[in-house]
């Protein structure tokens, strides 16, 4: 049985439908992620799981208990769901110890003290009991928010853009740290973010949302290499979709040449398709059959990201090359295709 299951969730504000028929499952101890651009409904979905929003139809179950449906709405304080907020929402008038013990008021003092110590050790902030939230750095506050939410041993942990207010460089490191903590506590969790690097660093399974609809619920590897549609293909990772035409059961004709792989069921010759070309599918070499012209380049530190124009004068693709292997704009380059996963979308 899944720890969390959403079945055909619809959320509506008046006439406006913000979540369309979303279903997904998260197994015990797994970390799921809702990923999508801003306004896609991911935070609404998270708030519905937490109990801050009512569902119009469908149902949400935690273990074998239904917590939300049009008839049932268990209030947030009764759900045993922990939540970490984007602004952390630490209680400014309470010490760190009192913040953490807030959700375990019913335990004995001794048990509370013990749990506080254990959690502070877990988040690497031992000895901070007597401090106040404003004395802590942003990253420390975030770990306290996590410890506070973990204290009552919630059945599910929700994290709303937990790294949104951190420096970009720090986010992936923090995401890894939080993942380790959650795994150590064996907590099932759902994360909401618009940053795919964060999602990849933290989640076991990721759902991509667009305009209130779940596009794909899958593990990161599959999202990248087997995107379900053009939106996911372009949203996850880098790459461009170029037009192609089916030749036979194994090959497709495109502007970069003939590519081969397993075609979707029902593909017939002459059917138009789109082929996803990622930068890592292109290998720039000294001399090859295929060539293109550099039209722009962006320095990425270890590498350059080149935008290349193919000989048909209209199709562009992206390519990566080590930064010591430089090409000038306007220069003709040669490349080979190294496509291990052929991604075709209708």
């Amino acid at each position: 049985m899944s720890q969390l299951s959403l079945q055909n969730i619809v959320i509506q504000y008046g006439q406006q439908v913000v979540i369309h028929d979303v279903s997904l499952q998260v197994e015990h101890g797994q970390i799921g992620c809702l990923l999508g651009p801003s306004g896609c409904g991911k935070t609404t979905l998270l708030r519905a799981i937490a109990g801050f929003e009512a569902v119009t139809s469908g149902q949400i179950a935690l273990g074998d208990t239904i917590i939300s449906s049009p008839q049932i709405h268990i209030p947030p304080e009764k759900r045993q769901i922990g939540m970490v907020f984007q602004d952390y929402a630490l209680f400014p008038h309470l010490t760190i110890a009192n913040n953490i013990s807030f959700g375990i008021r019913q335990l004995s003092k001794v048990a509370q003290t013990k749990r506080i110590e254990q959690l502070l050790e877990l988040v690497n902030l031992s000895g901070y009991q007597k401090r106040y939230p404003h004395e802590l750095s942003g990253g420390q506050q975030q770990r306290i928010a996590l410890a506070r939410a973990l204290a009552p041993k919630p059945k599910l942990m929700l994290l709303d853009e937990p790294f949104g207010s951190q420096d970009v460089e720090l986010r992936e490191i923090l995401a890894r740290e939080v993942r380790d903590i959650l795994k150590q506590e064996q907590t099932t969790a759902i994360l909401v973010t618009h940053d795919q690097h964060e999602a990849f660093a933290m989640a076991d399974e990721i759902g991509v949302l667009k305009a209130g609809r779940l596009q794909q619920w899958d593990n990161p590897y599959h999202l990248y290499h087997r995107p379900a549609n053009a939106f996911v293909a372009e949203f996850i990772g880098q790459g461009v979709l170029i037009a192609g035409e089916v030749l036979d059961n194994y090959t497709v004709q495109t502007a970069v040449g003939v590519v081969s792989g397993s075609l979707p069921v029902g593909a017939t010759p002459h059917m138009p398709l789109q082929v996803l070309i990622r930068p890592d599918d292109i290998r720039l070499v000294a001399k090859a059959e295929r060539k293109a012209v550099v039209i722009s380049r962006v320095f990425r530190g270890a590498e350059y990201l080149y935008t290349l124009q193919l000989s048909d004068q209209k199709t562009t693709i992206l390519a990566l090359a080590p930064s010591h292997q430089q090409y000038e704009i306007g220069e003709t380059v040669y490349f080979e295709l190294d496509m291990q996963h052929l991604v075709l979308v209708p």
């Binding site: 801050f52 304080e77 602004d87 929402a89 630490l90 959700g103 929700l158």
Partner: peptide, 18 residues
């Protein structure tokens, strides 16, 4: 008072009066 403070309180087991 930020609204997330209310939400945090609710998710930690407080009712509206709490």
């Amino acid at each position: 008072i930020k609204p997330t403070i209310d939400n945090a309180g609710r998710s930690l087991g407080l009712g509206s009066v709490g």
